[in-house]
Every structure is written in C-alpha cells, then in structure tokens.
Write a protein that binds this DNA or RNA. Structure first.
Lengths: 358, 358
DNA sequence: CTTATTTGCACAATCGATGGTGCAAAGACT
DNA sequence: AGTCTTTGCACCATCGATTGTGCAAATAAG
C-alpha cells in the first residue's frame, strides 16, 4: 500500500496560477472555450499549465453539476464465465471508444441482488445500464425507471424495454440437428437417446428447449418429456443429474444437449468420478463455446453466441429515443468439434516492456 | 431503451417533506444522527419518508464533499480469461462485503493504457486501486502516488508498493517435476524433450522459467537454452511457435510446459491444423487451470493459482498503514489430469424465479 | 470623435451531501 | 424565579466543475 498526502490540482489552483478565473480555466479544459470566446493564447497557456500540473477534472464534481457521470454500467450474473467475461471485454471496448468509463458488476442471478446492485450503480449517477442475463429484468427496470435511467436488456429479455438476445430457438435447433447428424446412419440416434441437461425457467432455456424438441420430433420422430432436465446453472446440480441418470441406466445418453458451459463442467465432474468409463458412443452439444471443451476426447459440438454482434446492437438500440420494447435476435454460430476460434483478445497486439533481466 | 423524466429524491426534498433541515435529514440517513443529538422520533420519521420516496444518497455529491467515492478499482490485463475473471469475481465479493462498489477495468497489458486507465479511475476519486498483472506496475504507481491513492500490486510485482503474487518459482518447479514424472520410467524424458512455450519478459515468466530450468537440470541432467520459448501472451504467437517447431522436427516435443491458458489455446489452434496427428506420447503442463483443458485427450497437468488467497492477502496488506514494498508469495496448487475443481461460483445458490410458462 | 459591436473574460449560482458552529427551548438545580 | 446544562436542531460554508449573465475594454462603424 502507499498513500502520500498529495492532492490533485483543481481549476482553482490553475486559476490562481494563470491569473484567469476558474470558469475560464474550466471552459478551456472541457473544450467549451470557443463558445465562450476565450483567446487562443489564454487557452494555450492554461492548457500548458494543466499539462505541467497533471490536472484532470474531478469527475464527481463534474457529475454532480451535470448530473451525468460518464459511467456506463453492465450488470452481469457472474464474471467468472467465458461468455460473460467476453461480454464484459467487448462492452468495455465500446464504452471506452465513446470516451466513457465502464463499470461492470455481477449479481449472481439473484433478483433481489440485481435490484440492489442496480440501485448502487444509480447512486453513482451512471448514464446508462446494460442489464445482462438478469433473472428478473423487469424488476431491475422498475429501479431504473424510477431513477430516469436509460437501460436495455441483453441475453435474457424483459418486457419493458428493448432486449438484445441470442436467437436461442434457432441455436437450439441447429445444435440439436448437428448432434443427431453426427451419429452414423447405421447407428442412428433414437428419441430416447438424446437428452437435454441444464437451464432453468428463463427465456433462453425455454427457447433452446423448444428448438431441441422441434428438431427431435422432426428428425427422430419423438420427443419424450423425460429427456428434458433443466437442472439450472450450477455445475453440481448438473453433476447430480448425470449421476442419477447413470445410476438408473448404467450409462449416459448417447447424445447430450448441455445447456451452457457451467453445466458442461458438471458433466466433467461426473466423468472425473467414473475414470474407467471411456464414454465412446457419446456426442455432446453445448450451448456455449470453449476452445478446450471443443477438443475433448469425444465429439463436442458447440454454439458460440455473437458477443460482438449483441453488444453492438445493444449500443445501437439504446441510443434510439423511443425504441419499442421488442426483442432483437442475434444469430449464434455453430462450432464443429475440434475448433479453436479466435476471440476479442486476438485483436490485442502482444507488446512487451523492455527490461533488465533478459 | 427507456428514460422517463423522473428525478431522484434528495435530502432537500425530504427536508421539505419532513419539516426538518437538510443537515438533519443527511445526518439521519447517513447514521451520524446520534452524534448530532437528533430525536429518535425525528429520525424514525425521516427514515420512513426516505423509505417511501426510495431515497438513496447521491454518491457523487457525497464523494465530492468527503473526497472519497466508495469505489475500489481493479486494473486487469483482460476480462476475457478464466484466471482474471476469477480474480474479478473474488475481488467483487470482497469489496461488496466492505460496503463499497467494485470498478473493474482492463488495460490490455499496455503500459500506456495502464497509466491512462488508472488516471481515469483516479478522476472518479476511487478509494483504492488493485493493480493486477500490469506490464508496468511502477508506471501505474507514479500515477497513483501523484494522486495520493492507496494501491497494491497483484499477480505481477512492482518495486514501489507491496505485491501479492503467486509463488511462480515453486509453481514452475512442481509443474515441471509433475510433467517429467508423468512419463514411464522405461521411456523417460530427455533434456531435449521438454520445452517451455509462452510468457514474456515479466517477473512471473522469469520465475516459472527459473523453476523449470532448475528442475530440468536436477532431474534430467540438462537444460538447453533452445527449450525456452517465451512467445508472449497471444494464442497466435504460440501457435506459430508450435508450428515452427513441428516444421523443423516433424513432431512436437514429448513434454510441454505451456505458460498460461492463452498459450494453451495456441496449442489447440496448432492441433486443429493437424487433425490427423494423434499426439500420443505427449504430456502438457499448463500454468493455469481450466477444467475442460484438464480432460483433453492427452495428459494435462495444471497449476491453479490461489485466487481467493491472493485477494484476501492483498486486502489485508493494503490496509496496513506503512507496509514495505515487499513481495508476498501465495502458493499455487498442482492439479492432476482429469480433475474438475470447484470455483467461486459453486458458492452461489442456484435460485430460480417462478414464472408463468413451465 | 462618438456610438455600436464585438471580444474576452469574471462573477456567482448551482448540483447534493457533509459537518462545524451557534442558538433557542426544555429541563435541572439552587 | 434565576442561572446552568442539556437537548434538538437549523444555518452555512464547503467540495470542484459547469454555465447563464453581465460588463469592461478593444475594435469597428458612422
């Protein structure tokens, strides 16, 4: 830790140093000085003073006066997840490119926590809020609405403001179809061989399940209810479900539709407890993309959601003055087994800092 | 998007409604009212008013007055990474438990961007800054120091303030040893069979490489320079390095020490381009943990850094008034192949929101 | 040289919460 | 009843930047 007693320079400091008034200094440094007919030379002088004294405006003061903070919020379920952290990464890039500062927080999919967290962000006078994967988007909406805060839903839709989400029905369809078609025609999948695990009572799961069932009915001619196991979004719950199935049937289903990577981790936990089982005759489809999962020792077909597309769309829609609360669908992408896709990080140059020890 | 014209209630609104002065309202609502000898009944009345009007304090105003914001910053290289997003998750929990608000940003490992990003956070009067994995921690230190901001380094050390980092030397040692010992004694590894890929000119890489070389010398009796390939932290650079080795030798080294998961992704990209190669006789050690990687079709030994331990230690040290700028080492953990560990998300209850459609 | 205009900037109110200070009213005490 | 103490609260300056307004000095127009 470290904390010298130094203080930051203010416009008052600079006004004394420059012999101008604080308002002149302020105008020069925030760019409104032409409108105020400040002399070019005065502006230049103040700018140089600001430079040498490392002046940066106090955003709390500015925000208090202007009732805007330059902060843009993103409310996530969790950070610790490839999909959501990828959203955070892309979100941050967009916000920064607009000269604002991102503030990304998570609320654990708990409706109460979602509202409280939104309220906290509002108390910082954030300018906009992107509500991502919230369990209760309309609850968060109430909080935003009461504060007059612009907001939008991502990933899971609400009914009060526009929502930008993945086309989960289509994604569910193409993933299910890919799983089925991955089996050889001489040993085709039966309706009881293809199970769906994971997901809960949310819009995304409903749509994925709808797509799953539609394709099963169409291609396999059947769609038994017991093949749907919406075990939630927790690895251990999924693990238990796999374990229960295994205990009952002595094997796993030949085809698995795993709803989200966290539930796929549940499958891994299950497998770790059955080290001698080879799980040959198994095809997994997972609604989420992870490069390592893609290379597992059994065929893994994955869905990658179009994170960049969703964020871009969300920024576009949130700027529209009176957008209707409709759902904007963004198409996801099917990823065949053994595929290593590039991500947002590939855009970064990999620079280094020259140092002493080589 | 949505934005009603509503405004938030202020202490002035409540002061009119309650017939008390703004200072009384303020004192009641921020808890200092006993010190100010406000009557219990007055306080109760104001509290109820605040409740019904959904009052929350304007943090910008409070922060301006008190020159504290309640914001605690975390500066990351990237969000989009299992290790760093896990740090963010744990960091957030710690900050929230202290009643403050986390603000997590990334700076792409670029020294210039690191300083600018820190300056931005400082302009929001953040109370503390945790500098994580920065390429130039001391550069960020200068910025913090000039603003009188408490800060600490995580993951990569600086020389000006305390640093909490993984014991990379020891981690490098145990990982290297585990790789070597994973080969059967009848087909042991030679000094030229074990390569290290990834990492750059930073403290962590130096230490890991030091551990790697020490163990190689000790157990394999040799440690050729060409076995060290610090290709950076970019998947494609690593891929190219594997490709180059493969072009030269017609195969991969039998043992691989892969420095960080992002470089492991480079290995996957390489493998995706060689679909007919089985890569039997291959053992990979990776300095990072990922459950999916752990189950790949070849033995993968991993290191999991103690994220909770590091964050906890960092919070402990940053509170010490005049802590010396020493390095605090936190021991990492060796993860054998095919292991699905639990993470911070397992602590969350998996709750659901009851809804209409079942 | 006088009256308009324009230029260049200073003044002061404001955003909302905080906290030091002061002062009346109520109660205690003689 | 008169003084002293305590209670309960209001008043006001303050944090730093923004912004509407006003007013001299410089310049242009007549």
């Amino acid at each position: 830790m470290a904390n010298s007693g130094k203080k930051k320079a203010t416009i008052y400091d600079l006004s004394v140093l420059s012999g101008s008034s604080p308002s002149t200094v302020s105008a020069v440094l925030n760019g409104t000085w032409r409108k105020r007919r400040i002399k070019e030379s005065t502006a230049e002088f103040i700018r140089s003073l600001a430079e040498t004294h490392q002046y940066t405006a106090n955003r709390q003061a500015r925000g208090l006066r202007s009732s805007r903070s330059g902060l843009v919020g993103l409310l996530l379920p969790v950070h610790d997840n490839r999909y959501f952290s990828s959203l955070a990464q892309t979100f941050e890039a967009h916000v920064r490119s607009k000269g604002q500062c991102p503030i990304v927080v998570s609320a654990s999919r708990d409706p109460e926590e979602e509202r409280k967290t939104a309220a906290t962000l509002i108390s910082y006078s954030i300018d906009e809020l992107f509500i991502c994967g919230a369990t209760d988007p309309d609850g968060v909406h109430e909080v935003c609405e009461a504060a007059g805060l612009k907001h939008i839903n991502i990933d899971l839709p609400g009914t009060k403001v526009p929502s930008v989400i993945s086309d989960n029905f289509e994604g569910g369809r193409i993933l299910t179809e890919a799983i089925i078609r991955h089996f050889p025609t001489d040993r085709p999948l039966g309706p009881n061989d293809l199970y769906l695990f994971g997901g809960r009572n949310d819009h995304a799961s409903h749509e994925r399940i709808r797509g799953f069932r539609a394709v099963k009915k169409e291609l396999l001619g059947g769609d038994p209810d017991e093949c749907i196991q919406p075990t939630g979004y927790a690895a251990n719950n999924a693990r238990k479900a796999f374990e229960a199935f295994y205990a009952r049937c002595g094997k796993l289903p030949r085809g698995l539709f795993v709803n989200s990577s966290i539930n796929f981790e549940g499958l891994l936990r299950f497998m770790a407890e059955h080290p001698h089982d080879n799980f040959t005759d198994l095809v997994v489809g997972c609604y989420d993309y992870d490069p390592f999962a893609s290379f597992l020792p059994f065929p893994v077909i994955m869905i990658r959601q179009d994170v960049e597309g969703m964020i871009a769309k969300a920024f576009e829609v949130i700027e529209q003055p009176r957008a209707a609360p409709r759902i904007h669908l963004v198409e996801p992408e099917l990823v065949p087994p053994r595929t290593a896709l590039t991500g947002p990080l590939d855009a970064l140059k990999d620079i280094d800092l020259p140092r002493g020890k080589p």
